[in-house]
Design a binder for these strands. Structure first.
Lengths: 245, 245
DNA sequence: CGATGCGTTGAAGAGTATCAATACTCGTGG
DNA sequence: CCACGAGTATTGATACTCTTCAACGCATCG
C-alpha cells in the first residue's frame, strides 16, 4: 500500500480553492497528507486541532465492540471537521483516497482568533450550524424505509457533494463497504440496490466507482416517501400522529 | 383539546435554571407558551428567531409526502434550536407537553450581540458543536441493527436527558408514536421491544410513560449488540472492512 | 501467474412491517 | 359516579424485506 503515512508540511498560507472562509486562520495552519485508509485522528485522541480538507476525501466513523463500523459522515474538500469534541475525539477520521491533504489548525489559537475577529467567529458559527443541518438531513436518509430509498438518497447526496463538473458522471471516492456502513446496511444489499437501479436504467456505470444519473425523475420517485431537501412542500397532512386536533 | 395556542409574554430576563449561557442575550428575548402538539415553528417558515426551551419538551421533525413523519430530535429545557436553517426552517418543532415555555431571540439582534461579545459568540459556537456531536451520536443509534438495540440505546439517552432526580424512575414526555418516528421503526415494534425488556426484568414500568432501569448492565449488553437470549451470534467479523492493511 | 481485496449474484433464514383485533387511559358529559 | 369515546398501547398472525452465508467474477499488484 503506497506512500506510508502522514508527511507533515507547513507554511501553507492562502486560499487556492473555493471560498477560503477563514483567511486570518490560515497563517497558523499546517498541512498534512495522508494515504488511503490512514487516520487523520483516532477516536480517543486529544481534540487539540481543527481540520479542513484541501483535496481528497475522508470518512468520519465509529467502531463497535465486535468490529462493526459506522460511518458518520463523508467529507470533501472545504469541509471542516474535528470540532465535534470537547476534550477527546469521539470518532475517528480517515482518508478515503491516497494523497488526501488536510489543513490543521491548533484549536486554542484558532479559538483565540475567533474571539478577536467577529468575522471569523461568524464563519465558524455558520459552518457549525450547517453541519448540524447536514447531519440532521442524514438522519432522514437513515430513517428511510427501504434499501432502494436509502441508496437513492445517498446517490443524490453524493452527486451534490462530490461532483467535479456540472454535468456528467461522478466518481465516488468510497467503496461499497463504506457506503454500506454509511447507510447502515449490508454491502450485498447496497450492491443489489445499485444493480436494481442500473437495470431500471435510472443510473449508468462508467466503471464500478463512477456513475451517472440517467433518469433523475425516476430516482426522485424512488426516494419519495420522504422529504425534499429544499422547497416549501406545504400541504400538511397531519391526520395521523399529529398530537394536535 | 385544552388551551388553544401561543400566548406570548415578554420581559423575561435572567436565568432561573441551570447554566444560563447567554445572559446578555436574555434582555432581548421574549417568552412563549405552547399547548401539547402545537408548533413553535413550521417547516418552510422564515428562520428569523433562535429559541431555547425553558420548561417542557419539544420534538423537531420532518414530514413526508405520504404523511409519514421522522423525528430529528427531542429537546429539553436548556436546549437551543432553530439555528439549523439559513433562510427558512427545514424542520418543524412542536411542543410535546402542555405548558412548554420557550425563550425567543430575534436572530439578527442575537447575531449582532454575538459579533460584539466574544463570550457570547463562544458559547453559541460550543453549543452548536455539541449539537453536531449529539446528532452524530444519534446516527449511531439509528444505525443499530436490531429493534432491541435501538430501544435500549434510546432508553439510555432519555434517562440521561429527561431525568429530574438523580435516581429513580423517569417519565418520558413522548408517546410510542414519537419514539417510533424517532427510531425509524413501527410503533408496534417499539412496544414489543419494551415488553421484551420488561419481561426480562431489565426495566420496570411505573406507568405507561414512566419507567425505571432495573438492570443497567443487562441493558448495556442489549445495546452492545447480540447477546442476551439465544446465543449463536458471536461470530467475529472484524477481518473485513478495514480499508487499511 | 496466483494472491488479495473488492464487487456481484444466489439461496436460506431472521427480523421487522403491516394488518387486524383487543385492552388501556383519560377527559368529557350524562 | 359511571359510561362513553377518542387517542394510545399492547398483542397476534402473516408477508416481505433485509441480512447472512456461500460462491464466483473481476480488477490490481507483487
Amino acid at each position: 500500500m503506497a506512500t506510508p503515512a502522514i508527511a507533515t508540511a507547513q507554511g501553507w498560507s492562502a486560499s487556492s480553492d473555493s471560498a477560503s472562509p477563514l483567511s486570518s486562520l490560515e497563517s497558523m495552519s499546517t498541512m498534512a497528507r495522508f494515504a488511503a485508509g490512514h487516520p487523520i485522528y483516532l477516536i480517543g485522541s486529544p481534540a487539540d486541532f481543527w481540520y479542513r480538507i484541501l483535496s481528497g476525501a475522508c470518512r468520519m466513523c465509529a467502531y463497535g465492540f465486535d468490529g462493526n463500523r459506522q460511518i458518520v459522515d463523508f467529507l470533501r474538500p472545504g469541509d471542516f471537521f474535528g470540532y465535534d469534541a470537547q476534550i477527546v475525539h469521539s470518532f475517528s477520521t480517515e482518508a478515503l483516497v491516497s494523497g488526501t491533504t488536510v489543513a490543521v489548525y491548533p484549536r486554542r489559537s484558532a479559538e483565540r482568533v475567533a474571539d478577536s475577529d467577529p468575522q471569523v467567529a461568524r464563519r465558524i458559527r455558520e459552518m457549525a450550524f450547517s453541519s448540524v443541518f447536514r447531519v440532521q438531513s442524514r438522519l432522514l436518509i437513515l430513517g428511510r424505509a427501504t434499501a432502494l430509498e436509502k441508496v437513492g438518497s445517498f446517490l443524490f447526496e453524493m452527486v451534490d457533494r462530490f461532483r467535479t463538473r456540472l454535468v456528467g458522471p461522478v466518481t465516488l471516492p468510497m467503496s461499497r463497504y463504506d457506503i454500506a456502513d454509511y447507510l447502515a446496511m449490508a454491502t450485498e444489499t447496497v450492491s443489489r440496490a445499485l444493480t436494481n437501479l442500473r437495470e431500471q436504467g435510472v443510473i449508468r456505470f462508467e466503471n464500478v466507482r463512477c456513475l451517472q444519473i440517467r433518469d433523475r425523475e425516476s430516482l426522485e420517485n424512488v426516494c419519495r416517501g420522504s422529504m425534499s431537501e429544499s422547497g416549501p412542500m406545504s400541504t400538511m397532512k397531519l391526520y395521523r400522529r399529529s398530537g394536535i386536533a
